[in-house]
Simulated scan of single mutants.
Amino acid sequence: MNMIITRRLFERRPPSREAKIIYIFCEGARRELAYFQYFKEMDSRINLEIYELNPHEDNSPLGLLEIAKNCILVTAENPEPKYNLQDQDEVWIVLDSDPDKGNSRRPQISAIKSEIESHDRWSLVESNPCFEVWLYFHGQAEFADFKGMEACKTWKQKVNTLLAGGFDSRRHPIYIADATENAKANFFLDEAGNLKIGSTEIYRLSESMLRLLGDRIRDAKAKLDT
């Protein structure tokens, strides 16, 4: 895998509001933000809005849902939300499955899934146990199986050993199409219908992004081989 990648692979183009906007709300304030920002800067034809959490905001699953609602939904108490959602736009909430000390995450995630059913084009995607599962599939086609894989810390260490210098959000996201294929092929649920450890639903979000960016990704990757 050739990792010599710069943003000069991508030609800046004028923005167009005719294209849909994909709004992304992540509980992680650093790695997830840097990953999705890569695509926002790549090509203005994909209109991404990645909400940046501040340290004082509630990044629990239900807290993140409330942030998304306050940013998007028009109500009597909130007549002018941060974002102007249009009919073609999508809203994605990106969460980890890793349980907290009170084991409150699963009930919260279930509550979010029920609530967003009433909102068109709102989706929730999980990674079990953490976002690094998604990053893993950028360079790996096989389902992960290693000691301690139930812990986020172990996944962070694993991803760093698979790529020289660790996963670099300035370069490696270009392999999003590979990650989509790999993650989808290794997506499994347990008997209760929850994600198995080592599975991620982020491929669903990436499929939506690739419908807009697919040609640009292929063109950029082709330049790496010339």
Score class of each variant (00 low, 15 high):
S127N: 01
K156V: 09
L162N: 06
L135P: 05
A144D: 06
F143L: 14
E142I: 14
L124Y: 00
Q140T: 13
N128G: 07
T154A: 14
G165T: 03
K147C: 02
C130R: 05
K156M: 04
P129A: 04
E150T: 11
P129K: 08
F146Y: 09
V125M: 00
L162Y: 03
T161F: 01
L162E: 10
K156T: 07
A151Y: 13
K147Y: 07
F131G: 08
F137W: 07
G165Y: 02
A141D: 12
Q140R: 11
N160M: 06
L162T: 11
K158D: 04
Y136F: 15
V125S: 02
E126D: 02
W155T: 08
D145K: 15
W155Y: 11
A151L: 14
C152T: 15
F143Q: 13
V133Q: 04
K153A: 10
C130N: 11
E142L: 12
K158V: 10
M149S: 10
G165P: 09
K147S: 13
Y136A: 11
F146H: 08
C152F: 00
F131T: 00
T161A: 03
K147R: 14
L163D: 05
V159E: 02
V133M: 04
A144P: 15
L163F: 14
A164V: 10
C130H: 05
L124V: 15
E126H: 02
V133S: 09
A164C: 01
K156H: 03
K147D: 11
W134A: 11
F137G: 06
A151K: 15
V159C: 15
F131W: 09
P129G: 09
C130Q: 07
N128Y: 04
